[in-house]
Amino acid sequence: MRRVTVAEIMRETGLSRATVDRVLNGRGHVHPRTRAAVEDTLARLGRGEAPPPVIAADIALRVGRGMMAQMRDAWQGAGLTGRFEDLYLADEDQVLRRIEDLCRDANRPLILTAKNSDRLTDLLREARGRGKRIIAAVSDLAPEARDAFVGIDNRAAGQTAAFLIGRMLGDRPTTVGVVLGNIAFRCHEDREIGFRTALRAHFPKVVLAGEAQGEDSADLTRNAVLQMLKDHPALGAIYNVGGGNVGLLDALGEAGRAGDMLVIGHEVNAVTAPLLRGGGLDFAIAGDPVTLLAAALRHAFPEGAENLREIGLLDFAVYTRFNLPGFAHTA
Rank of each mutant, 00 (worst) to 15 (best):
I264C: 09
A270M: 05
M228N: 11
A270W: 01
L308V: 05
V271P: 07
G236N: 11
R277V: 10
G256N: 04
D231N: 14
A294R: 15
L314A: 05
V246A: 10
E306L: 09
D282V: 00
A300P: 11
G278A: 12
D219M: 03
G259N: 12
L324M: 03
N269R: 08
R321W: 02
V271T: 11
L275M: 10
Y319F: 15
R309C: 01
G253E: 11
V225H: 15
A286S: 15
L262T: 01
A234W: 10
V290N: 10
A317I: 02
A294H: 12
P274I: 07
R222Q: 15
G304E: 13
A284E: 08
V290C: 00
G259D: 14
V241E: 12
F283M: 06
V241L: 05
A224S: 14
G312A: 11
G244R: 15
L262P: 07
H266G: 01
A224P: 07
F301E: 13
E267S: 00
R309T: 05
K230D: 13
L249E: 09
G279K: 11
G287I: 03
G247S: 02
R257I: 06
H299S: 01
T221E: 11
I311N: 13
L297H: 02
G279A: 05
D219V: 12
N307G: 01
G243S: 15
P289I: 04
L276A: 08
A224M: 09
T320A: 07
N245Y: 00
E306Q: 13
I264K: 02
R321D: 08
R277H: 05
L297D: 03
A296C: 15
D250R: 14
G278V: 09
H266R: 14
G214W: 07
L248C: 06
N269P: 03
R298G: 01
D219E: 09
L229K: 04
N269D: 15
M261G: 02
A317W: 07
R298I: 00
A224D: 10
M261N: 00
V241W: 08
L313I: 04
R257T: 07
L308K: 04
L229W: 06
L249V: 10
A251S: 06
A234S: 15
R257V: 04
L292I: 05
E215M: 10
G279W: 01
D216P: 09
E215V: 00
L248V: 06
T272S: 12
L226P: 05
G312V: 12
A284C: 13
L297E: 05
L275K: 03
L220S: 11
G242E: 05
A273V: 10
G253I: 00
M261F: 03
A273P: 09
V241H: 09
G236L: 11
A237P: 15
G247H: 10
F322V: 04
N307S: 13
A317L: 15
